[in-house]
C-alpha cells in the first residue's frame, strides 16, 4: 500500500512554490509597485492592489492550501493588472510569452506537489503487471484522437462553412469579432467537455474499475442470497396457496 505523504513532508517544494509565485509577481506587478513607491502621487489602494498576490502566496504556502495557491493567487492579479499603467504593458514584445510560461510552470508545479500530497489509496486498485503510464496511454490516445477530429470539425463550421460565413456577414456589423467570439466560445465548450468527460475519467480509470468490480461482487452476492431465499421459500408458498384454495372452495 502506498502511503500518503504527510502535510509537512515537502517544505522544499512549498519554498519552491513561494519562489515561483514571487517570480511571477515580479514579472507582472513588481515594477509597477516599485514605480508606485517612487511616484509623488502614490495611492494606497494601488499599492494594495499591486502587493496583494504576494500576501496571497505567503498565506497559501503557510496554510498549504491548493485553492489559495491556484485560484485565489491567480485571481489576485486581476485588480493589479486592471489598474496597470500603459508603461508596464504586459503585451509588449516577449513579455507576454515570458509571463505565460512562468504562469504555466507555476500551475504545473503546484498541481504536481498537491498530486503528490494527496495521492489516492492504491490498496484497492488493480495491481496489474502493465505499467501505469502504458495503461493511461492506451486509454487516453483514442479519446484524444476523437476529440481532436471533433474540434477540427467545429472549427471548420466556424471558419470554413460558406453558409455560416454568409450568415455571420449578414448578421453582425463586425464579422471578424463575431468569428473570433464564436470560435472562442466553441473552443471553451470543447475544452471543458473533453477535460471533464474524457481526460478526468481516463485518469481515474483504475479507481473507477475497482469500485465497479466491488459493486458487481456485492450485487452478485445479493443475487445469490435472493436465489437461496426463493428456493427455500417457494415450497411453503405453494403449500400455503393450495391450502388457501382448498379452504376457499370447500
Amino acid at each position: 500500500m502506498e502511503e500518503k505523504i504527510p502535510r509537512d513532508y515537502l517544505p522544499t517544494a512549498f519554498g519552491g512554490i513561494a519562489l515561483l509565485g514571487i517570480a511571477l509577481w515580479v514579472q507582472i506587478l513588481g515594477s509597477a509597485l516599485f514605480g508606485e513607491f517612487q511616484s509623488q502621487t502614490s495611492s494606497f489602494f494601488h499599492v494594495i492592489a499591486y502587493g496583494l498576490p504576494i500576501g496571497v502566496v505567503i498565506l497559501g504556502v503557510l496554510l498549504r492550501s491548493q485553492m489559495i495557491l491556484l485560484m485565489v493567487f491567480l485571481s489576485s492579479f486581476v485588480p493589479g493588472v486592471t489598474i496597470l499603467p500603459e508603461a508596464f504593458d504586459l503585451m509588449k514584445g516577449a513579455a507576454s510569452l515570458r509571463v505565460g510560461l512562468s504562469c504555466l510552470v507555476y500551475i504545473l508545479v503546484v498541481s504536481y506537489v498537491f498530486a503528490l500530497q494527496y495521492s489516492p489509496d492504491h490498496s484497492i486498485l488493480n495491481t496489474s503487471a502493465t505499467p501505469l503510464w502504458k495503461n493511461l496511454q492506451q486509454r487516453i490516445e483514442v479519446p484524444l484522437v476523437y476529440s481532436f477530429v471533433f474540434f477540427l470539425v467545429l472549427q471548420y463550421a466556424v471558419f470554413g462553412d460558406a453558409l455560416i460565413q454568409n450568415t455571420i456577414l449578414q448578421s453582425y456589423e463586425d464579422p471578424t469579432i463575431a468569428l473570433i467570439s464564436i470560435s472562442v466560445s466553441i473552443f471553451f465548450i470543447w475544452c471543458i467537455s473533453i477535460y471533464l468527460y474524457f481526460i478526468v475519467p481516463a485518469l481515474n480509470f483504475e479507481h473507477e474499475l475497482a469500485k465497479w468490480k466491488k459493486l458487481k461482487y456485492e450485487q452478485h452476492d445479493l443475487f445469490r442470497l435472493q436465489k437461496i431465499f426463493e428456493r427455500n421459500i417457494f415450497p411453503f408458498v405453494v403449500i400455503f396457496l393450495m391450502l388457501t384454495l382448498v379452504i376457499v372452495f370447500i
Binding site: V153, T167, I168, I182
Partner: peptide, 10 residues
C-alpha cells in the same frame, strides 16, 4: 454543436 454555431451566426 454544429447547430449551435449556426444559431450563434444568426
Amino acid at each position: 454543436l454544429y447547430h449551435c454555431v449556426e444559431f450563434l451566426a444568426e
